[in-house]
Design a protein around this nucleic acid. Structure first.
Lengths: 228, 228
DNA sequence: AAACTTAGTGTCTTTGCGACACTATGTCAA
DNA sequence: TTGACATAGTGTCGCAAAGACACTAAGTTT
């Protein structure tokens, strides 16, 4: 054994491999999508998996997840939260690897340059059209989706998908996409008003051959408030 | 380096120490208490800390937490859930140790034999009278308490503190202790009825010089239901 | 038997949530 | 220029859940 370890390992204190895997969500064409990577190496070569990587010896968990996010998308400063830690003894055939899973939300307008990065090895895939994933990554995505949907009910997390300025119809569409059901326009806007988390910009958004929509912005971008 | 490691460590895959620390809650004398251990060894010798231990090389995370719980309390089969993973690079002066924190709920009647175990080294301490704790354990307890209180609102988790048979007043007292506020008796019972998770046993409980109370039991002991 | 202690019960009001339909304002084509 | 079209924007009513609120019931003790 010739590598460096961050802590001395012995019988009482075994050493573990530690990775952070990140479920990176965005919304594309009215579908909730996650970023997948096609594995080039064994184990699971050729199989789709979550982006992830081994944690650096002096790296905080959050920083490791943020690094994975930045490496794959070039994006930073977006919503990123710890999801759950997966550590079954048999989850990685290489040996004992524990994964601290995170999930991130990326506004759809921040993926412009992503097309360049995308090749055969990286793809955005709708969560309801997932292929078989490597390791236990399918379970991780399910849990992340569930957590995200639950948070819609009691927080303003959906705003983390929005660009700086957006219309109320766009925001409603985000809710509908994540929840997988249609919402009533008037009830949706009534409830939004009670949150008091967005405000009019005074600008209008023109698209297509119809009435323009007011543009809104978050009052406190980057913060997620808990509702009620 | 002469110990066994569960995965080969090298520059790309550093190895980490991995512990499970468990916030063991119970309710004693109308106070929400956690089990603390007085550390006998450095680091933080003489300082109170959460019970915890290094994960075995072939041990699942849940199993490690259950083992810690059983070692300190002799109790098993109670509510035990993963809370959060703490992995700051400087949280343990010995080196890089990542802790997967769990929390457990122990019914107050299952601590009878605990007095024997208790000595200078182990104690139940009310959460609002915590001393300074080792590592980042103070933060872990705060997060666990917050999670527990939040779950009262949307699940039947409080029943996990109850013995097999209990009165409605006892159950209400548990809610009040965790939330830190008084509840209205009639509204409390009305809401309980809608959960449909407990039933009368037909027995009565006599205590003191007053009217006896009906004894109830959970319909499905050991399960926590999500409400609404 | 009177005082004491906790158990147990129902109504009314307020509030949040869901169902529901029409007008407003722009573009485009005839 | 006008009529057709497409999306933006707006308010009421009914119901169900939640909160405020006070008295009677059934034991024990003196």
């Amino acid at each position: 054994m010739n590598g460096e370890t961050a802590v001395a390992a012995n019988r009482d204190r075994p050493a573990f491999g530690l990775t952070t895997d990140v479920v990176i969500f965005t919304i594309r064409e009215d579908a909730l999508c996650v970023l997948l990577v096609n594995r080039s190496r064994e184990p699971f070569a050729g199989v789709w998996a979550l982006p992830g990587g081994f944690l650096g010896p002096d790296e905080a968990l959050n920083d490791g997840a943020a690094r994975v996010l930045a490496e794959k998308t070039g994006v930073s400063g977006v919503f990123l939260e710890q999801l759950f830690t997966f550590g079954g003894p048999a989850r990685d055939p290489r040996g004992r690897v524990v994964s601290v899973a995170y999930y991130a939300l990326v506004p759809y307008n921040r993926l412009d340059r992503m097309a360049a990065v995308e090749g055969d090895r990286v793809a955005w895939v709708a969560v309801d059209e997932l292929p078989e994933l490597a390791f236990d990554h399918g379970e991780i995505v399910r849990m992340a989706h569930q957590r995200l949907a639950a948070k819609l009910d009691y927080s303003t997390i959906a705003l983390q998908f929005m660009p700086e300025r957006f219309t109320l119809s766009e925001l409603q569409s985000v809710y509908e996409t994540i929840l997988g059901e249609q919402l009533d326009k008037r009830n949706f806007r009534k409830r939004l008003r009670t949150f008091e988390c967005i405000e009019e910009t005074g600008e209008m958004f023109r698209a297509g051959k119809h009435r323009p929509a007011k543009l809104f912005r978050m009052k406190q971008p980057g913060t997620v408030e808990i509702i009620k």
